[in-house]
């Protein structure tokens, strides 16, 4: 019954992976994501085109919450194409690629733009009984353009390749009310900069290699999922594993220990092949990140490449 419903539900892709890649200007997301319990049926494909708009005018310089008249409001816009495909009813492939651009409303830092990172994930239903289910996701991402990683907060990403593993626990009541809890560990590769020395951890490194801290994230969702409607409230937490802190009046740096707690809501309506979705998130607390308001809206199109066998 669960999977019957899912057939009609477009889903979100990659919120966690992409959201925190560019944490000072948290990104966008869309349909199915690695941290939910939603699957495409075998041979079903859903394509999503989404627009994201994230902005902040307040940020945490280490623990100091401040504004910066030489930044004003930092805005990240993204346009992403994503897809979710049912390899089997229990195994889905998710892919996505965003084009990102950044700008400030004040000061004189040059906005950056370009194709960011290609992401892919496999989600597998490990266990499912009486509405209780457990899922595992393995994913990764890789930069697809040679963008500058350390011109924060203008860089479009950190240029780190990532690999993540996630477990998702879900309970769906037959009323349509559901609860999800998820957690993940993301390994992030070191990156190369254009410089041959830099300062981090209060030290000079005579190297062009930056250590990007690994990261954990987790969250809970409470929502409603029935027929063509999905509506969810969520709480998410992201933490780097190590890293240094933005120094007093310094710029953020990719080596920073970025931390954030976000709350938000997500809705999706897909009565047929076409659907729409929208997401809102807000950073309630953080460290070395912007207090971001994140908005996303997408158009979904779902189809099947073969006649369903049943």
């Amino acid at each position: 019954m669960f999977s019957m419903n899912l057939k009609y539900f477009m889903t979100r892709i990659f919120a966690a992976v992409l959201l925190f890649r560019v944490l000072l200007f948290p990104a966008f997301l869309s349909a199915q994501q690695p941290n939910d319990a939603i699957y495409m049926d075998k041979n079903a494909i859903c394509i999503v085109a989404a627009y994201g708009h994230n902005s902040w005018d307040t940020y945490w310089e280490n623990t100091l919450k401040r504004q910066n008249l030489n930044i004003g409001t930092n805005t990240t816009q993204s346009f992403a194409l994503m897809a979710a495909a049912g390899i089997t009813d229990k195994l889905n492939l998710l892919v996505g690629l965003p084009y990102v651009s950044t700008r400030n409303s004040a000061g004189n830092l040059l906005g950056q733009k370009g194709l960011q990172d290609f992401s892919a994930a496999l989600k597998y239903k490990l266990f499912n009984n009486e509405g209780l289910s457990l899922h595992g996701t393995l994913g990764g991402s890789i930069p697809v353009s040679n963008y500058v990683p350390d011109f924060l907060p203008m860089s479009i990403g950190l240029h780190s390749a990532t690999a993540s593993a996630r477990l998702v626990f879900n309970y769906l009541h037959k009323s349509g009310i559901y609860f999800t809890a998820h957690g993940a560990y993301t390994a992030r590769s070191n990156v190369r900069t254009d410089r041959d020395s830099y300062q981090a951890n209060d030290k000079i490194y005579n190297s062009d290699e930056l250590a990007i801290p690994n990261a954990t994230d987790g969250g809970i969702n409470i929502g409603y999922l029935k027929n063509s409607l999905q509506a969810t409230l969520f709480l998410e937490r992201f933490d780097c594993v190590g890293g240094d802190h933005i120094r007093r009046n310094d710029a953020p740096y990719p080596t920073n220990d970025m931390e954030a707690t976000n709350i938000g809501a997500y809705v999706k309506f897909q009565p047929g092949h076409f659907g729409v979705n929208a997401r809102y998130a807000y950073t309630t607390s953080g460290r070395n990140v912007g207090q971001t308001t994140s908005l996303m809206a997408g158009i979904l199109y779902q189809f099947s490449i073969k006649k369903s066998s049943n």
């Binding site: 560990y185 390994a187 930056l210 990007i212």
Partner: peptide, 12 residues
């Protein structure tokens, strides 16, 4: 992932 990632940057 956790074991494989020795991320420390060493000065030459």
């Amino acid at each position: 992932f956790i074991v494989a990632c020795d991320k420390d940057i060493q000065n030459p």
